[in-house]
Design a protein around this nucleic acid. Sequence first.
RNA 1: GCCGCCAUCGUCUAGCCCGGUCUAGGACAUCGCGUUCUCAACGCGGGAACACCGGUUCAAAUCCGGUUGGCGGUACCA
Length: 482
Amino acid sequence: MSNQIRVRIAPSPTGPLHIGTARTALFNWFFARKNGGSFILRIEDTDLERSDSKFEEDIKESLQWLDLEWDEFYKQSDRIQIYKKYLQKLLDEGKAFWCCHTKEELKKENEEQIKRKEAPRHVCQHKYGKPKIKMTNGKNGIIRLLVNENSTRVIHFDDLIRGTIEWQERLIGDLSLAKSLETPLYNFAAVVDDYETKISHVIRGEDHISNTPKQILIQEALGFNSFQYAHLPLILGPDRTKLSKRHGAESIREYKKQGYLPETMNNFMALLGWRPKERNKLEKPEDIYFIDELVNLFDLKNIQKSPAVFDVKKLNWMNGYYIHQLPAEQFRAAITPFIIKELGVSMIKEDFLDKIQHLMTERIEKLSDVRNFDYFFREPEYDRGLLNWKSTPADEIKRSLILTKEAFEPVDWEIFDKDYIRRKLDDLAKENFPGDRGVVYWPLRVSLTGKEASPDPIDILNVLDKKTVMERLDNALAKFKI
RNA sequence: GCCGCCAUCGUCUAGCCCGGUCUAGGACAUCGCGUUCUCAACGCGGGAACACCGGUUCAAAUCCGGUUGGCGGUACCA
């Protein structure tokens, strides 16, 4: 089964799952699912200092939240013996060697090269013979790959997105492989794992292009066949630099926390640097693609080469769309934690949620925006002045409120008829405040919501009970007493 | 500095491979109009881009070269 498609996502657990890593995961997942291959999760925790298992958990949870299930799981810290074996082999064959230059020496070499306008690289003298300094199992040095600094070879590889990429071998220098036999470094561990786990395609961020020639050299030294490469364009912030914390949210968990839906994230991330050849089904807005469509339409060939700026406005629009489309059951499940958190309300009746669902979803972009709908759950607080409608005098506003209240007195809320109520209110306005229904509707809306912006007051009357409505009108009236 | 990658509306992009069908299409955003008690939703409409300079050609957004610009890498991080 050597033709089997096998791809991987290899995050290091040094922080929560980054949006860029998630997008790389998504594309790998698309590629695997589309081609009947396997999607592998590999935790790259060779840097013990910076790695933390709590981030490993976050990565897994975030991936699961996005519904990107992996087929196999590996963790580099479990595989030290495997790397050690290959490291020893390279050492025995004389393809790798111990370098015991100090960091200061390396830094000095580097600075001098820059001064001479040369490419910075470490050309280690220790490869020409045993280092003079005695070492006890690498404590004083690191293992490097022997690379010909005078080579005229041009290393090239075919990138599935960018075509042929070329690199001068002599510019690479004796690259580092491991700090010791038990502590491999990134490039080495990645090559060994990709080979051992039979990865067919390495699909990763553009920031890895410069690692590729190094990894090719390591593969050759080890006698491995190379892989297919595809380097994805980076995601940039609004200032066109690599997306990071100072641009706001950068991890999947933060987007989840703010009330973005996983389907929004997947749809949006998919369109960052890629676009399906075919349009979606006509019933949906342009750019809305369901996950299955994305998988079917996915093709490495039409991935963009240039980086993409992350546009939160479009993300918000898309999330609003998905929230609006949520079936009642899913909406209840999604919104409830946000109501509890944002409004401190814990007793939420399901049928009540169903009634206000579309009232809210039409004006929500993120689930956390429910904080603007407190009036559905409790008495609103507002200033008297908000009841004013244009230049209508205060006593007219008061009269409008009284008339409205009187109009509601005989109404049986059990058989609430929106058309009937609207007619009643319209008539009331026509009789008492001809030419401007706002004198009736505005104060009523404010009494009910305490907000300048809200859904149609009739719709709100429809979901509140009569007692609550009357109380809120009384509260509004009370503001005129002083 | 060095190496590499890239370059269409403010943003994501279609078109580029196989030059004419492109007075460059769509989406988000923006502006205006309609609806309207407010907001939203919805409907209609407007403005908005081929980085620059050369070359090839009857013809270039599309092909070639250069310039400029952006981004990434340049670790005993991944």
